[in-house]
């Protein structure tokens, strides 16, 4: 598939800390691409280099196969992780103000529709709740009818219901055939929204594929987990003890359980589930994504 944006071998250091250390990937047009990783993995640095806000130490960003040019800013929409808005102006005025900064803009009524802003249009920016604010910022990212939308942790700090509402809005944008680049540290969010994800840790990409592809290439079968107070003396094959749980990845649950019983390991609290992105992350990085 044709790629809308591509990064090649990005490097960025802050002093002796390598925030981004040789990252390359390309994003096909029309999908939602998730950039995942724990806090401090380099997600925001990577995305801000792509947006043109930060300068990389080396490496390049290609937009539709060309180096980023003068009109790049007119064709992309950006929602930063945290942005203050001018106080004392209303949501509608803010949208109009930002719209007027672009040569090409989308009618404000459409933006209001897509982002469900009609109830807060005349409210002062500083009186918005967290969820309303994120909807408003998403609206701002869309005022110029961009082909590519960057969303940097748009749902961090929102309550579960507000997050779900926000996912619906992202669904609206996807329905418009726009490409979305999303960073998040919520695995469920990535699993629901993204066609393709890349996982970052310590400034490097450690995996990239579709969510099912990543799971099937890293896990066979299901995970059996049992809470254990201390590691049993003898462990079954392929079993690992982590964070107070004994974990076994298996294709044959019955056989595995029989072996556990034979080893006199208590099955109290046992759970069996198919691997999800959280498990994948634990496996790949050794740390929990939710830390």
């Amino acid at each position: 598939m044709e790629s809308i944006i591509e990064v090649r071998d990005l490097h960025k250091s802050y002093g002796s800390v390598k925030a981004v250390d040789g990252v390359s990937f390309s994003v096909p047009r029309g999908i939602c691409f998730g950039l995942l990783g724990p806090n401090g993995a380099g997600k925001t640095t990577t995305i801000e280099i792509m947006e043109g806000i930060l300068r990389s130490d080396s490496g390049e960003v290609l937009f539709k196969g060309e180096p980023v040019g003068a009109h790049f800013k007119e064709r992309v929409g950006i929602q930063f992780q945290s942005t203050a808005l001018q106080d004392y102006i209303t949501v509608r005025e803010t949208l109009e103000l930002f719209g007027s900064l672009y040569p090409h803009q989308r009618p404000i009524d459409e933006i209001i529709d897509i982002c469900s802003l009609s109830d807060i249009l005349d409210r002062d920016n500083k009186k918005l709740s967290g969820g309303q604010r994120q909807r408003m910022l998403l609206g701002l990212a869309l005022v110029n009818d961009p082909e590519l939308v960057f969303l940097d942790e748009p749902t961090t700090g929102l309550d579960p219901q507000a997050r779900r509402n926000f996912w619906n809005l992202i669904g609206n944008i996807k329905a418009d055939r726009k490409t979305i680049i999303l960073t998040t540290h919520y695995m469920d969010e990535a699993e629901i929204l993204c066609e393709e994800i890349a996982i970052m840790d310590h400034g490097r990409l450690i995996a990239q594929d579709s969510p099912p592809g990543l799971l099937s290439s890293n896990f066979e079968g299901v995970l059996v987990r049992i809470p254990v107070e201390q590691p049993p003396e003898s462990l079954p094959e392929r079993a690992v003890v982590k964070d107070g749980f004994l974990e076994i990845e298996t294709n044959n649950v019955e056989e595995e359980l029989r072996r556990l019983i034979d080893l006199h390991i208590s099955l109290e609290g046992l759970s069996i589930h198919s691997a999800d992105l959280d498990d994948l992350f634990l496996k790949l990085t050794g740390t929990s994504l939710r830390e």
Partner: peptide, 16 residues
């Protein structure tokens, strides 16, 4: 204040 709270950063992302 705009620089401190990120309003300038947001404007930098526009063609202004």
């Amino acid at each position: 204040r705009y620089r401190k709270n990120g309003v300038l950063k947001r404007l930098k992302a526009t063609p202004v």
